[in-house]
Design a protein around this nucleic acid. Structure first.
Length: 876
RNA sequence: GGGUCAUUAACUCAGUUGGUUCAGAGUGUUACCUUGACAGGGUAGAAGUCACUGGUUCGAAUCCAGUAUGACCCACCA
């Protein structure tokens, strides 16, 4: 056997990826075919591939390759996201390590560093995706800060502003003191923390009385501007209208009354700090309280912090508690668990802060996007996410879209005066100037008089346009590409960004295209380790995907990822799965090695046995193909893979190839060979989405192909209804084979010893699969007999009795025992069936088919009892 | 505090509208086989009180109620 050696994944994978790239198979242009489009969830431009990406992109590649084979014009648009806050944080850290502070730089200087960083690290992740086999249309690679995409973002901002949906407001926002920027509500993670509830006495002005207040944040008392009680709280009636003295700063503040206060929590008396708490702010507005901000942007205290000025909030908390103790104001301290908001990006504890920010009104925009999901115009897979989605959309709040960052799209608002409203919003400076002149009535205004808003837009304000902007559908809403590729078909992403991204894309889709951005959203789970911990860099429990690919091959890793990834459920990743994947690849490869080693002869006519094997496998293939289609239609990708896996491993390799395999040293009929190869090729087609490399390799080795005949662009097998009778008949044969194998094993009859087989009913085994029995079990002859031959081993398949007359192996006692056991079981079964059938309520209520099935069982059981009795008799 | 989902073999999961001999798969495991594709192989086997308790039904892993455990999402009680 010449030539074909062990499989070398690395070599094969590099070779075929280059080949696919060089021949442009991944590239899509508009043509007469129906498009099938996926836009990649753009990873952070400077990110590196992690297991989540791996899962995500493997799924997308499976879908896109399958679509390509099914004759769609498959287009998978890759790209990256500028990831405003994440990237800026990395650049700031990098500069810091070089001794440069961001505050020392101008915006332009900083952006230069950021671009340099982006060019250096950007796109690494896309190169990594290529190792995985991702068949993205790389010519279409986009970046959210490409000039055209940036223009689209600005255009949308201006448009929404003019529609009155974007506004500037002085609001309580989530402040990340580490990144020194605001965050949207979605970027705040609430974590349960063990804290304390401090009970502090405030002195009542002009009296000896004290009032006890409970708080988790004693340091904010420096910003207190009132104390609030419930108007109907009998404990505090005498305090109405009085004032109290805030400890340490000695500020005299009013006691106000509001039903907002819960009488049953703490002491029923609340300190009000309008600058540092959302609810207090509401109270402050209602009661016209003074607002005293005590923090700097980095959450150290400002001059309002008195002698604590310049110190960090948490240090101050400790110090203030000590001071209160010294002053005798601290009554007691209780432990208290409560939820603390932290930054999704930096982990810093969020500080509620009042400031001027830009907001997008969401309520009206969200309505069509909510309807679309509820009426399944956009399908969420799995459907359980529909509820989550609805809940969020119904309660959606205005979106804070401004960030105090430099890396990103700068807000196109221009200030021309000192008033709060002295600004205009425009896509270009020229346009802004014109508008500013008009608004101010000052025709003398020049460029120098305009100052652009310093803030950048939230990253998601650009990615929510992604499915549209990658086809330039914002700037040129009528261009052929957007009309052809949009709406896209499937989106594959993580549920974590359902609100951040998916919901907002749907909103943008209806607002800017009047149509859904995609038909289906496949939400993957989180990749976890064996201990169910989320895989993360910080835990160090995440294998490097590229190491895995080195070790198991990309095909092996793809199979490993897909073997256990039901939509929306977490994936318990175990490296053994990749091992299983690579074993599968090896199995496919060895099937090829076998076939390639055969000597082909034109002289040999096709045997009856070969013909039957081919007939059977063709039908079996059809039957499994149908299952695979069904699984894909329900996005059950693991199941589709497992069906393919079993078809190839068990049916194709273990049954079919063993069946047609010529005896050692003999040649195979040329006709048979050609048909075996054709069936092998059909297998390769359905394998290709899962294991693109090994399938292409074998495909190209089975015969010489031109570039138009590559597997990647082959035609998916035609789907026909299988002949189920034929498949059933062979299932019966398999059981007979299995029965004989068991007998051989029990009686220790060597496979080399030829045996005969006697059947009591021709109908089921028939002569059709005699050849299979002969081939698999070394059976020389099959005979038919109505009654059991004397002194034979026996077994039963369904209602048939099979006998193997082998002298010297039959232990009469043991045979009898076995038969009696089987008889007892069958009689017991018959009894239970008859029990059901004699139950009038069952016969009356159960569907006809079910009753008929029971009657059939009864008949079968009776027949079986007869054959067993006959066998017992023959034993004597 | 509100909500969603899960709980089936040692592990990871199927089990479609309740109905084939009171549950299947892959992996793992056990025994045996294996110098002609593959030990990353083959054959055969063992392994489950379908979380628990009730209920509906002729019949429940499947439907209903409750309990327990776990996961996730949302939420401004100091």
């Amino acid at each position: 056997m010449a030539g074909v050696g062990k499989y070398n994944a690395q070599e094969v994978e590099n070779h075929w990826y280059d080949y696919w790239m060089n021949h442009g198979y991944f590239h899509s242009e508009i043509d007469e075919r129906t498009p099938y489009t996926i836009v990649i969830p753009p990873p952070n431009v400077t990110g590196v591939l992690h297991m989540g990406h791996m899962l995500n992109n493997t799924l997308q590649d499976v879908l896109i390759r399958r679509a390509r084979l099914k004759g769609f014009n498959a287009c998978w648009v890759p790209g990256t996201d500028h990831a405003s806050i994440a990237t800026e944080a990395k650049v700031v850290a990098k500069l810091k390590s070089e001794g440069i502070e961001k505050s020392d730089l101008t915006r332009e200087e900083f952006l230069e560093h950021a671009w340099e960083w982006t060019h250096k690290h950007g796109g690494i992740i896309l190169e990594q995706l290529k190792k995985l086999g991702a068949s993205c249309d790389w010519q279409r690679t986009k970046f959210t800060m490409d000039p055209d995409l940036s223009e689209s973002v600005i255009q949308v901002f201006v448009d929404l502003y003019r529609k009155g949906l974007i506004y500037r407001g002085y609001r309580m926002v989530n402040w990340d003191p580490e990144a020194k920027t605001t965050l949207s509500d979605e970027e705040v993670i609430h974590q349960e923390r063990q804290g304390h509830l401090y009970y502090i006495n405030y002195a009542v002005a002009d009296s000896k009385e004290k009032v006890l207040i409970a708080t988790t944040r004693p340091e904010t008392l420096l910003g207190d501007t009132a104390v609030c009680i419930h108007p109907e709280d009998p404990r505090y009636t005498h305090l109405k209208g009085k004032e109290v003295i805030v400890p340490i700063c000695g500020r005299k503040v009013p006691i106000i009354e509001d039903t907002y206060v819960a009488m049953d929590f703490g002491t029923g008396c609340l300190k009000v700090t309008p600058a540092h708490d959302e609810n207090d702010k509401v109270l402050g507005e209602k009661h016209q309280l003074e607002v005293i901000d005590i923090f700097n942007d980095d959450a150290t205290l400002n001059e309002q912090g008195l002698h604590y000025k310049g110190q960090d909030r948490f240090a101050v908390r400790k110090a203030i508690v000590e001071e209160l103790k010294t002053l005798g104001c601290l009554e007691k301290v209780e432990t208290h668990t409560h939820k603390v908001g932290t930054s999704e990006r930096t982990g810093a504890v969020i500080e509620p802060k009042l400031s001027d920010q830009w907001f997008l009104k969401m309520k009206d925009l969200a309505q069509p996007a909510l309807d679309a999901v509820l009426n399944k115009e956009v399908m969420l897979v799995p459907e359980k996410f529909i509820n989550t989605y609805r809940h969020w959309m119904e309660g959606v709040r205005d979106w804070n879209i401004s960030r105090q960052l430099w890396w990103g799209h700068q807000i196109p608002a221009y200030y021309y005066g000192s008033g709060r409203e002295d600004f205009v919003v425009a896509a270009t400076l020229e346009e802004a100037l014109e508008l500013a002149r008009k608004r101010s009535g000052n025709a003398e205004l020049s460029h120098e008089d305009l100052t652009q808003d310093a803030d950048a837009l939230d990253t998601w304000f650009s990615s929510w346009l992604w499915p549209i902007s990658v086809f330039d559908g914002i700037r040129n809403p009528d261009n052929p590409e957007i009309n052809y590729y949009y709406p896209t078909n499937d989106l594959v992403t993580a549920p974590e960004i359902l609100f951040f991204w998916v919901a907002r894309m749907i909103i943008a889709g209806y607002e800017y295209r009047g149509a859904r951005p995609f038909e289906n959203v496949y939400l993957t789970g989180i990749v976890r380790d064996k201990q169910r911990r989320k895989m993360s860099k910080s835990l160090g429990n995440s294998p490097d995907p590229l190491d895995l690919i080195d070790k198991y091959g990309a095909d092996g890793v793809r199979v490993g990822m897909l073997l256990s990834s039901p939509a929306g459920n977490d994936l318990m990743f175990d490296e053994d799965l990749c091992q299983q994947g690579s074993s599968f690849v090896n199995k496919i490869w060895n099937a090829y090695r076998l076939v390639s080693g055969w000597t082909i002869s034109e002289e040999i006519p096709q045997s009856d046995s070969d013909r039957k094997a081919i007939e059977w496998y063709a039908q079996k293939f059809q039957s499994v193909l149908g299952e695979i289609e069904d699984h894909f239609s329900k996005y059950r990708i693991s199941d589709a893979l497992m069906a393919t896996y079993k078809l190839v491993w068990d049916d194709f390799c273990s049954w079919f190839l063993e069946w047609v395999k010529p005896e050692y040293g003999k040649a195979i009929s040329a006709d048979t060979y050609a048909q075996v190869v054709a069936l092998f090729e059909a297998n390769l087609k359905i394998l290709h989405p899962f294991v693109p490399f090994v399938s292409e390799e074998i495909w190209q080795k089975l015969s010489v192909r031109t570039k138009d005949q590559a597997l990647i662009i082959a035609q998916w097998p035609e789907i026909n209804a299988p002949d189920t009778d034929l498949i059933q008949a062979f299932e019966h044969t398999k059981e007979v084979v299995s029965g004989i194998r068991t007998l051989r094993k029990e009686k220790n009859i060597s496979f080399k010893e030829t045996i005969d087989l006697t059947v009591n009913d021709v109908a089921n085994l028939g002569d059709y699969y005699q050849s299979a029995v002969a081939k698999f079990c070394n059976v020389a002859q099959v005979n038919y007999a109505d009654v059991a031959p004397e002194g034979a081993l026996s077994f039963r398949v369904r209602s048939n009795e099979y006998y193997v007359p082998v002298s010297g192996y039959v232990d009469v006692q043991q045979e009898r025992k076995k038969l009696l056991e089987e008889l007892a079981y069958t009689e017991g079964f018959l009894k239970s069936v008859r029990g059901k059938l004699s139950n009038a309520r069952f016969v009356d209520n159960a569907p006809e088919a079910v009753v008929a099935a029971e009657r059939q069982k009864e008949t079968d059981a009776l027949a079986k009892i007869n054959t067993i009795n006959s066998a017992l008799e023959s034993l004597g």
